[in-house]
């Protein structure tokens, strides 16, 4: 199946400046899809996932309109054609 990742601008440094990455994956979950993205673009992994395997505190991942923090985290299911958006939280000062 095909999933589309929407990449925030700071991470496009690691995706050949691409804001939309379409990948053919065999993933069933967000975690597996992210793994596939990280194989294609290794610079993304550490900036989204900590060494404890958790999504970074100030990074949000949406599948469609749903924040995966509210829907099973990295175990959130993905389906063919879905969009996975990676976006930093609104914070700072």
């Amino acid at each position: 199946m095909v999933v589309t990742f929407l990449i925030p601008s700071p991470l496009r440094l690691f995706t050949d400046a691409t804001s939309k990455v379409q990948l053919e994956v065999s993933a069933t979950t967000v975690g597996e899809a992210l793994e596939a993205l990280s194989v294609r673009y290794p610079g993304v992994r550490d900036r989204v996932i900590t060494e404890r395997g958790e999504v970074r505190e100030y990074v949000n991942i949406f599948v469609g309109d749903e924040n995966i923090r509210d829907s099973g985290g990295l175990a959130t299911p993905v389906r063919d054609g879905c969009e996975i958006m990676i976006v930093p939280s609104v914070a700072g000062g």
Binding site: L13, P42, G43, R45, D46, T50, E51, R52
Partner: peptide, 18 residues
């Protein structure tokens, strides 16, 4: 230089994150 992987990482068994 901007390494793809963060160079300083705690090993998985420590349960820590930098």
């Amino acid at each position: 230089a901007n390494p793809e992987s963060h160079p300083i990482k705690f090993p998985e068994d420590t349960g820590q994150a930098l």
